[in-house]
Design a protein around this nucleic acid. Structure first.
Lengths: 348, 348
DNA sequence: TGCCATATTGACAGCGTTGTCATTTAATAA
DNA sequence: TTATTAAATGACAACGCTGTCAATATGGCA
C-alpha cells in the first residue's frame, strides 16, 4: 500500500539517491531522468516519510507556531494560514501555545529543537517582540519569522512581517474626528505588546494633526481583554466630562466598552461612538456591529509561513530572498478602516 | 548539548536496549537497573527523539485532532486540552482542520497515516458522527476516540466520549418553564450534528412533561452560526403569536438571537428570554450575559486524549481499559445549566 | 580519436530509535 | 550442590531517508 523511496527507485530504474534528488529539487539531474522519477512518484502516489526525513536530514520538515492565547479567533486564523502554506510544501506544523508571563518559553523552545527537531518557528506577539525570546531563537540557529507591530522590527526587517498599527490607528482616529468627535477616549491593550504603543501613537498623531489637545485623562490602561474593556469604558464614562467616542485597542475590548455603555443606558452610536481593532468575527456579532480596522490575519500567517519555509529550504540568504520575491510575499500590512454601525456623529 | 539514547546508556552502564525498555515502561527490568537509567536520563535531560521513534517503532508518537471549524473557542479548548495530555506523555499533536461538506476527509485520513504515521485520532463532530469517516478510521487500524453527542455512541461506547445534550437541553427548557414560559422557540443547529437532534429531544421532553403542546411553528432550522441565529429569531419573533423565550442551540446562535431582538427593540429579558448552549467565552461578552449550559470542552478534550493515548500505548484492549480506570477518565458529560442575565419571568 | 573537465549517478554510511532473538544472569527445584 | 527454567540484558538489524564521496557518463576540444 504505502510506497517508499525504494519502490520509486525500482520503478524508475534509478538509485534511491536520484529519487531523493528529484523530490528535493536538487540540481544535477538530467531532465529525462527527472521525468522518469516524477512519473514513478505519480504512479505510486509516493509521499516521502516525514519521520525518516527528519531523522536523516540536517534540516527538518516541521515548523512551530508559538503563541500566547488571548484571542481564539486570532490563533485559529494564524494556524489555518500557516497550515495552508505548510501543506503546499509538505511541511508539518507543531502548535505551541505558551504563557508569556511565566517565562519558560526559552526552555520550551530548546526542547522543541532538541526533541522534535523543528526547522523554524513563527513567533506571534508578545513573544515576537520579546528580546530574550528572539535571542534564544537566534542562538538555537532556528529560522524564524516574527509577526510584529512595525515599531518592533528594528534592524531585523528580513525576519519580520510587520503590521502598521500606527497608520491604522491614525485612520480610525481620523474617522472619529471627521464625525466631529473632539473628546475621544483610548483604551490601551497590554503593556507588553508593541502594538499597544503603536496604536496609541497613531491616535495621538491624528489628534495632534487636527489640533486637538491630548488629554491624559482620556487614555486608560488595559490588556486586550473583554473585562478590561468594560472597566476602562466605565472609568471613562463616569468622568465629569466624558468622551463622545471610545477607541478600544481591539474588538474584544470594544465589545467590553459596548457592554459598559449598555449597563449605563448609553445609546450607541447616538450618544457614544465605539471603535475596535482587528475585525475579528465577533465584531460582527455585537449590536451594533463594530466599526474596526480589518487586520488580515490569515493572509499575514500565510506570508509568515511562506517566509520561514523559504528560509528553511534555502541554503543562502540570497537564495531565500529570491524565493520570497517569486512568491510575492508581503512583509508589511496596514489594517484597513472598516466602518460599520458603532460610530456616528458626535452628539455635541 | 542534546543527548541520545547512547549517552544515557553509556552513563548508566547498560545497553541502549535497556534504556529503551525503561523509557517505554516495558517489563523485565530490574528495579536497580531501572533506577540507574532513570538517574542518567534525569542528569542528561534526555528526551527521546520523536522522529527516530516514529521511524523505528511500529507504533507512532503522534496523534491527530480532526475538526471542522465552526467555532474558534471550541477548537482552541480542544487543542489545549489534548496538548496537555500529549505533553504529559511525550506525544505530539497534529491538528487537522477539514471541511465536512467536501468529503475528502477519508483521503486526508489515509494520507495522515501513510505520510506522517499517526497513531491515533481524536474525532470531533460532525466527523465523529459520520459513519463513513468512522469506518475509514477503523479500516486504517487507527486508534481513535470520538467526541459525540450521546445518541451517536451506539455500540461503540468504548471509543466515545459522550456529551449528554438531551439531558442538558431538558434542564435548560425546564428552567424556562419554571419561569412561566409556555411558548418557547427553538433554534436548531446543523442537521449533520447529532447534538442538534439531542438538544431538540431534550427540549421536547421537558415541554411534554410539563404538559405543554409542542408547536412545530416554534422550531426553526439553523446551523450553529450567528447569522442563522439572527434569521431564526427574526422568523420566530415576526410570528403572530411569538414566543416569550428562545432556546438557541449554541451561544453563537443565541448571540444572533440577541442581535435580532435588539434590532426589533425587544428588551431582554423583560420581554423575551434567550438561552444559549456551551458556555463559550462570548456568552459572557454579550449584553446581557447569556444563560447557557456549561460544556467543559477542555476537560472533555483531556479525557479524549488520555483515552487515545492509553489505547495507543497498550497492546490489548484489557490493558488499555485498566489504564483508563487508573487515570479516572470520564466518558460521559452532562453540560450544566448556568443561569445568567438573559432569562427571566415570562411577560404573560 | 583520445583525453580532460564537468555533469550525472550511485554505493554506502549514518540519523536515533525499536523489535527480534540470542545470551547471560538470577532464581528455583532437585 | 547442580540442573532447569525464567527473568534480565545485550547485539544487531531494521525503519526510510539524506549526505558524502566515489564512480561513471557525457560533451568539448585538440
Amino acid at each position: 500500500m504505502k510506497s517508499t523511496i525504494n519502490d520509486v527507485a525500482a520503478r524508475a530504474g534509478v538509485s534511491i539517491k536520484t529519487v531523493s534528488r528529484v523530490i528535493n529539487n536538487e540540481p544535477s539531474v538530467r531532465p529525462a531522468t527527472r521525468k522518469k522519477v516524477m512519473d514513478a512518484v505519480e504512479e505510486l502516489h509516493y509521499q516521502p516519510n516525514l519521520a525518516a526525513r527528519n531523522l536523516a536530514g540536517t534540516r527538518s520538515y516541521t515548523i512551530a507556531l508559538i503563541y500566547d492565547n488571548p484571542n481564539a479567533y486570532y490563533v485559529i486564523d494564524m494556524q489555518n494560514g500557516i497550515l495552508e502554506a505548510c501543506k503546499a510544501r509538505g511541511y508539518e506544523l507543531l502548535i505551541h501555545p505558551s504563557n508569556s508571563k511565566s517565562s519558560t518559553v526559552n526552555d520550551e523552545l530548546r526542547a522543541l529543537v532538541e526533541h522534535s527537531k523543528v526547522a523554524g518557528v513563527v513567533l506571534t506577539p508578545p513573544f515576537s517582540e520579546t528580546q530574550s525570546v528572539i535571542e534564544e531563537v537566534k542562538k538555537l540557529g532556528l529560522d524564524y519569522v516574527r509577526i510584529v507591530s512595525s515599531g518592533a522590527a528594528e534592524g531585523d526587517e528580513d525576519n519580520c512581517i510587520q503590521v502598521d498599527d500606527t497608520a491604522a490607528a491614525y485612520d480610525i482616529t481620523r474617522h472619529l474626528i471627521e464625525h466631529g468627535h473632539k473628546r475621544i477616549g483610548f483604551l490601551c491593550g497590554g503593556e507588553e505588546h508593541v502594538s499597544t504603543h503603536g496604536r496609541l501613537e497613531g491616535y495621538k498623531e491624528a489628534l495632534q494633526q487636527a489640533g486637538i489637545t491630548i488629554d491624559p485623562e482620556l487614555i486608560v490602561a488595559g490588556e486586550y481583554s473583554f473585562d478590561s474593556g468594560v472597566n476602562g469604558a466605565k472609568h471613562l464614562l463616569e468622568q465629569d466630562n466624558p468622551p463622545t467616542a471610545i477607541f478600544a485597542s481591539n474588538d474584544e475590548m470594544a465589545a467590553g466598552a459596548l457592554f459598559a455603555a449598555r449597563l449605563m443606558h448609553i445609546e450607541i452610536p447616538q450618544q457614544l461612538s465605539i471603535v475596535g481593532f482587528e475585525d475579528s468575527p465577533f465584531s460582527r456579532q455585537t449590536w451594533p456591529k463594530l466599526t474596526t480596522a480589518h487586520q488580515p490575519n490569515n493572509e499575514i500567517a500565510k506570508c509568515a509561513a511562506a517566509l520561514v519555509l523559504n528560509k528553511a529550504r534555502s541554503k543562502s540568504a540570497a537564495e531565500s530572498a529570491a524565493a520570497n520575491k517569486d512568491a510575492g510575499i508581503l512583509k508589511k500590512f496596514v489594517p484597513e478602516l472598516l466602518v460599520r454601525d458603532s460610530t456616528g456623529d458626535s452628539p455635541n
